[in-house]
């Protein structure tokens, strides 16, 4: 599914908070159908960039297009075409699995029949069919994360933004989570993911590494390892950070 057709174009993106520069002149493209990793230490400016691309924050300057729409003037259109999963857990604990799905389906304007068909398919795939009427608060964290991701792509967005989706989750669940990401990519969804787990960088098609608000490296994991003469992404990251 990998193409060279850009779905996100960012040219000279700058975001300042007062005199603090959170994003310093970022330029990159994300291609349709790829998994684009956005790596960096905490505070490197990853979340700021993702928030701008999702229309949650407005940039100071630069030219940005997401799914073909302008970040300044067409945020409504962008929101219609993306899915978003934030750092914090994002489902309602006091609602059941079904009620959460119905809420998001409603908010994204999905047709009821459409939503029902996809819900059945999704719950079966996750093995959660029996838990449809359980409250989210009663489920284990790993299940919740997988569910949150599946709900974020229920409306079949062009791009899904994942902001540190696997924080605080055990390695096995993380692996399962990445399988879900691969399944999403097979359906043609582009995945934009931030993480500070360097092993996860290996799973990306291309990875960019941010430090102090700048992109310091951007390539496939393989090429990055060659370029920095490292055995794995963790070493790449340590060499760059130094």
């Amino acid at each position: 599914m990998k193409t060279r057709e850009p779905v996100i174009t960012v040219k000279n993106m700058v975001k300042k908070f007062g005199s603090f520069v959170a994003n310093d002149n970022l330029s990159f493209e994300v291609f349709k159908g790829e998994i684009f990793g956005f790596l960096g230490a905490n505070g490197a400016g990853k979340t700021t960039a993702i928030r701008i691309l999702c229309g949650l924050s407005s940039p100071t300057s630069g030219e940005m297009k997401v799914a073909g729409f302008d970040v300044y003037r067409q945020t409504e259109k962008i929101k219609q075409n993306i899915g978003y999963m934030s750092q914090k857990f994002s489902l309602y604990e006091d609602l059941t699995v079904f009620e959460n799905i119905r809420l998001y389906g409603g908010v994204y304007g999905m047709k009821i029949a459409d939503r029902k068909a996809r819900t059945t398919e999704m719950l079966e795939r996750l093995g959660l069919t029996a838990y449809e009427n359980r409250k989210i608060g009663d489920l284990p964290l790993g299940w919740k994360q997988k569910l949150a991701f599946s709900i974020a792509i229920l409306h079949n967005p062009k791009i899904v933004f994942l902001d540190e989706p696997t924080g605080g989750v055990d390695p096995i669940t993380r692996r399962q989570f990445w399988n879900l990401i691969y399944e999403a990519v097979e359906k043609g969804i582009t995945v934009f993911v931030t993480t500070h787990y360097m092993d996860e960088a290996e799973y990306c098609d291309r990875a960019s590494i941010m430090a102090d608000g700048k992109i310091v490296a951007l390539d496939t994991p393989l090429k990055l390892k060659e370029q920095y003469n490292a055995a794995n992404m963790d070493e790449v990251f340590l060499k760059i950070a130094r």
């Binding site: 949650l56 929101k79 978003y84 934030s86 994002s90 309602y92 998001y104 908010v107 933004f161």
Partner: peptide, 14 residues
């Protein structure tokens, strides 16, 4: 506090 506000703001809801 729960972080759900972000999700709502990133959705097509105005």
């Amino acid at each position: 506090e729960m972080g759900t506000m972000e999700i709502l703001l990133a959705s097509p809801l105005k």
